[in-house]
Simulated assay, not measured.
Amino acid sequence: MHPIFERFPYRVPANKRVRVIVNTDAANEADDQYAIVQALLTPKLDIRGFVATHFGTNRTDTSMEQSYDEIQRILRLMDMSEDYHVYRGSTGCLNLDSPVISEGAQFIVDEAMRDDATEPLFAIFLGAITDLAAAYKAKPEIAGRLTAVWIGGGAYPHGGEEFNLGNDVAAANIVFGSDIPLWQVPRDVYKMPRVSLAELAVKVKPWGAIGEYLFRQLEEFNMLPTHTLRWPPGESWNMGDSPAVSLLIDDQNFDYELRHAPVIRDDMGYDHPGTARQIRVYKSVDSRFIMEDLYAKLQLFYELKSSE
């Protein structure tokens, strides 16, 4: 447990804590950063390490390295660089003929196969699910030793175009066809946590170097001239990655349904043969809980750091 949590005004029972791997395409846009910070400030989560992954090759050939650098930047701003390992993950889609086991995929295998750990292991995926598919191909035994939470895929029942899925459809099919326990947060659900930039200016920006950075990098991204007329809206943002963290704090055990895992077509539509294993598919998330938890933890962190 990070030393800062010893000074928090509340404690988390030891038997409620979980091990967590955070797999993120952190440099893709501006909301992964919020999820990373919320995970770092959540005492229930024993973060075992971060894995940087790609966000496709349409914009750059170095998206994984950019994500790696962004994770490191956040850790530096929070004075946590010495506390957490960051691993390099996949640089692009999984090659099904000769899968590359990245440093990050190997870390997933190693953490899942530990025999000395007593806390359950969760791996959250905020982008393409390439590294989990590679880890599973290398060591299928991990299926019984972790639970995956994925922000990705189109709305049910039909599916459709979605960014994270589109960056590696084959990897998603490997995971969906595996025995890995999976909680999926599809596009229509991860779009629920919406905030205004005014709200972020008041509730995020004031809280130290990390609060300033979270707000500034989002505001700067919002102003990029390369955006379309439809996205982003201009004065609001969708915190689409944050549900993966909040569901580890409270899994909302009444807001999901068990579905047979679909087979995903190349056009990202879902086929439902009805014979596959079941996965947990979320129908909604609690946006108020997600954002207010982050705001409170940012303030607590700032006040504790300021008193050192």
Rank of each mutant, 00 (worst) to 15 (best):
A138S: 12
D79R: 15
K137A: 10
T91K: 14
F163P: 12
M113K: 06
N58M: 10
I71Q: 05
S98Y: 15
F163A: 14
A52I: 04
L45G: 03
I124M: 11
T42L: 09
I108P: 05
G89F: 02
S81V: 00
L94I: 10
L40I: 08
D97P: 15
I71P: 05
I129Y: 05
F107R: 03
I108Q: 15
V51L: 04
G166N: 09
M80R: 08
R73C: 03
A138W: 04
D69I: 00
H158I: 09
Y68P: 11
G92R: 13
A105K: 05
D46H: 12
P120W: 13
L96N: 09
T60I: 01
P120A: 01
R88C: 10
G127Y: 03
G49M: 06
S102H: 05
I101K: 01
A143Y: 15
M80D: 01
E141I: 08
F50E: 07
L146D: 02
T62F: 15
Y87N: 04
V86Y: 04
I71C: 07
E82W: 01
I124S: 05
G49W: 08
A52H: 10
Y87F: 14
I74M: 06
Q106Y: 08
Y68F: 12
P157Q: 00
I151G: 10
F163V: 08
L75S: 06
L45I: 10
G160C: 03
V51R: 06
E162F: 09
T42Y: 09
T118M: 14
A143K: 10
H85V: 05
D97E: 14
I74K: 06
L40P: 09
I101W: 01
T118I: 11
S67N: 06
S63E: 08
L77V: 08
T57L: 06
E162L: 00
T42M: 09
P99M: 08
R114C: 15
D46K: 15
I47T: 06
Y84F: 11
I151K: 04
P140V: 11
F163W: 14
V149Q: 08
Y87R: 11
E70G: 07
E103L: 01
Y68T: 11
D97K: 15
L75I: 00
A128K: 09
G166F: 12
I124Q: 13
E103H: 10
D83M: 05
Y136H: 10
D46F: 11
A134H: 04
D61M: 02
E162T: 13
L75H: 02
F55S: 13
V149C: 05
T53R: 03
V51K: 04
E162V: 01
L126G: 11
A105Y: 01
L165C: 02
R73D: 00
R73V: 08
G159I: 07
Y68D: 13
E162C: 12
P157C: 12
D131Y: 00
E82Y: 07
F122P: 00
L75A: 07
R73L: 14
H85E: 12
I124W: 04
I142G: 11
E162N: 11
A135P: 12
P120C: 01
L165K: 01
I142K: 03
S102P: 13
G104D: 12
Y156R: 13
A112L: 12
F50P: 06
G153N: 05
D83G: 01
